[in-house]
Simulated scan of single mutants.
Amino acid sequence: MTDRDEWERRRRLAEVFGDDLPDVTTDEATPSSDRDHPTSRNADDRWFLDNRPPHHG
């Protein structure tokens, strides 16, 4: 399969299915240094720690 054939195949697939998936997912991306950013691992950890039941010390 040539590069041109591959390009045509991808173009047809994108035409039919669209391009809904991101190139890089949040688990592949470098965590943000912004602690309040929703995709930051620190923000997720902080939410769990803030909502931890008292008996989990």
Results as ranks from 00 to 15, higher is better:
M1G: 14
M1V: 14
M1L: 14
M1Q: 13
T2P: 04
D3C: 10
D3T: 14
D3Q: 15
R4E: 15
R4W: 12
R4S: 13
D5W: 07
W7Y: 14
W7R: 15
W7S: 14
W7T: 14
E8S: 05
E8H: 04
R10D: 15
R11N: 11
R11F: 12
R12D: 09
R12V: 10
R12L: 11
R12G: 00
L13D: 10
L13K: 08
A14K: 09
A14E: 15
E15W: 14
E15G: 11
V16D: 06
V16Y: 14
V16F: 12
F17A: 05
G18T: 04
G18P: 07
G18M: 06
D19L: 05
D19I: 00
D20N: 05
D20R: 00
D20H: 01
L21D: 15
L21C: 08
L21P: 04
L21M: 12
P22F: 10
P22M: 09
V24W: 10
V24A: 07
T26Q: 10
D27A: 06
E28S: 02
A29I: 05
A29H: 01
T30M: 01
P31E: 12
P31V: 03
P31A: 06
S32N: 02
S32V: 01
S33W: 05
S33C: 02
S33T: 08
R35F: 01
D36N: 06
H37F: 05
H37Q: 05
P38C: 01
P38N: 05
T39G: 00
T39A: 07
T39Q: 08
T39C: 02
T39H: 05
S40Y: 06
S40T: 05
R41F: 10
R41I: 10
N42A: 08
N42L: 07
A43V: 00
D44M: 07
D44W: 13
D44S: 08
D44K: 12
D44C: 04
D45A: 10
R46E: 11
F48W: 13
F48I: 07
D50M: 06
D50V: 00
D50Q: 06
N51C: 02
N51K: 00
N51G: 00
P54F: 13
P54S: 15
H55F: 12
H55E: 13
H55D: 13
H55V: 06
H56N: 07
H56I: 02
H56R: 11
